[in-house]
Design a protein around this nucleic acid. Structure first.
Lengths: 192, 192, 192, 192
DNA sequence: CATGAATGAGCTTTCATTCAT
DNA sequence: TATGAATGAAAGCTCATTCAT
């Protein structure tokens, strides 16, 4: 039984098209027909790869989030000193946001609107586990403030989302010197 | 002869209905018909008060943003010492986010998606002028780090949006002690 | 508050269009767009009068069935002798089927396919109550066979559906003489 | 070299799947994809055995009709006395409807909707020739009423379709005693 | 022969907006 | 002003059928 197989390329193209349209126009202005056209497939083809529009968005979210996380923890190892580890992760994230503004922006939309299933959002949260672990270790070593991870994340990581958005929209650029300043602010806000 | 006028109540009801629907379902699931129903008016009536859906959203954004700002700067005066002034503003904002989660959440959606006109967004930005001025003064007094306002905002104010979202979604509550910690982190990140 | 009101004409036109299309093409070839076109309204207008396609079909069924029944029992009164009463009803039904072939054919389709909701079908059955009552009386008077109404109906009334279908499709016409013969057969099959 | 041939099993499976789906959901809710799934083949395979959906339905109709007829005339011979012959045929048909409700119901749908090609319907009609012949003989022997076959069929055979439908849908069962009564009614309606 | 992917056409339904009163 | 009816356009999705292997 020889058959054509589902092409990973088409799936990729669809996810990419969705990312681009949602980014530029918002979920409500990213109709399946446009997504199909941008991906160079028939509208009906979308439904071979995804159950429906929500599923398409959910899968895109999980995929982007997971790529983001992979990037976030590269060159990081659990054996590193806490500050060194945090510095690596923080820079990975900052660079990702600078280099992949489309993906970053999409994640921001997902995290601030009800467009993603609660289930998928929960799934996506798992990706930052290693960072939480690092902070735990930092706390036990007396290096990191003994506060809940929400606060740590809010001050150490979340500001990067704002800077990325600003960079995309306003005349602002997170150059090396600013990045250093931003890192310092991040570290100052969580270290003891 | 009776001169009927546009009823401010209806306008308010429409804005409130829109806020609620966009918050809970997202822009893409907030049709005019539902907005009308929730506001107890006819769909056609919406077009007496607003030019179209985009205009409705834009006006809602500006209105909420302006109410937010009014709140943000209450009890604040330009004569105050920088730290005192910042403390007041920061607490105003924190309390607003805690007390008005619907409005806060809506602003988050607007700020992270393309649902608002660029023009309206620019308009909305003007509201934080006094804070920027305060920071300028702080810089000249050598109290505040000499960095662009994007970075100051990212670390001093923006984290509150994350904490508010977390509070609404996760089992997290920004109680008084955490608020104190959060303020400290905010202040640490911008002060020299 | 002055407003245009739902026009009974449009509703009627939609029901009529549906009847005609389903009759000639079957449910599966009666798309909403064609129904709308035939009724001279926009497709969207259908949804003002009916919840969805199923509702449209259900309502049509109930309306046709009820018109049929009204016709079936005209000039009939419960005081009549059983045979006289049955003769009137039978002839009413026969004439209806001859004069309203569209409606009759539609009811046949509904009764022999799963296109109608079970609930609506049950509702439609209520319309023949008076005939069942008449038969009950006939049984107690020793005139009608003491068998369940299904059998009485199968032999006394149901054959007319076949004759109507034949008349519409084949070169057959239920003229007065044949009608008399058919009535005789009907009566013979249920009388003692 | 192996010569693969069309598998009769697959064809059968497809016809069976179609029968089942049309019966339970109606023609309009029996998509080729579901038929394929139920028959455990690929949608594309259907088109090896049938030209298109209409052809599939037509062939199914003819096949079921012909199986029905075969059943209807078993143990019947043209030499039999008219009443005896009719009794055998009638009972064959009654038993078939009781034992094969799926097939019977399907034939009912076909006979009362436009889902079958006119040509196939005509083709299917040929199957009852022996019954018509028997009635002709009955007429010439002065046993059967001298009326057109439509009327004879309407009263002698067609009621069984109603009883079968009732049995499937309502709390009614055509047991032996009722069958005898039904036969009597059938015979009464056509004999002189 | 047999397949799962692929598709254009078309389905039902919803939408933002306008009409007529 | 205010309305519910009305609508063309377009949404998400499914379908019968074909393609490429």
């Amino acid at each position: 039984m020889v058959t054509r197989v589902k092409s990973p390329d088409k799936r990729k193209a669809l996810l990419k098209a969705t990312l681009s349209l949602v980014n530029n126009n918002g979920f409500h202005a990213a109709p399946m027909s446009k997504i199909a056209k941008l991906a160079n497939v028939s509208p009906a083809t979308i439904y071979i790869y995804f159950k429906n529009k929500q599923d398409l968005i959910n899968q895109l979210y999980l995929e982007v989030k997971s790529a983001f996380s992979e990037h976030a923890f590269q060159n990081f190892s659990e054996e590193m000193p806490v500050k060194k580890g945090f510095e690596i992760i923080w820079n990975n994230i900052a660079n990702y946001k600078i280099d992949q503004p489309e993906e970053s922006n999409f994640l921001s939309q997902c995290d601030n609107t009800p467009m993603i299933d609660e289930k998928s959002r929960q799934e996506g949260l798992k990706n930052i586990e290693p960072l939480l672990k690092l902070w735990e270790r930092g706390k036990s070593e007396g290096i990191i403030k003994d506060v809940c991870p929400y606060i740590l994340y809010a001050y150490a990581i979340y500001p990067l989302a704002f800077l990325m958005t600003a960079q995309q929209r306003e005349d602002f650029e997170l150059k090396e010197d600013l990045k250093a300043i931003a890192f310092q602010a991040a570290w100052d806000s969580i270290r003891i």
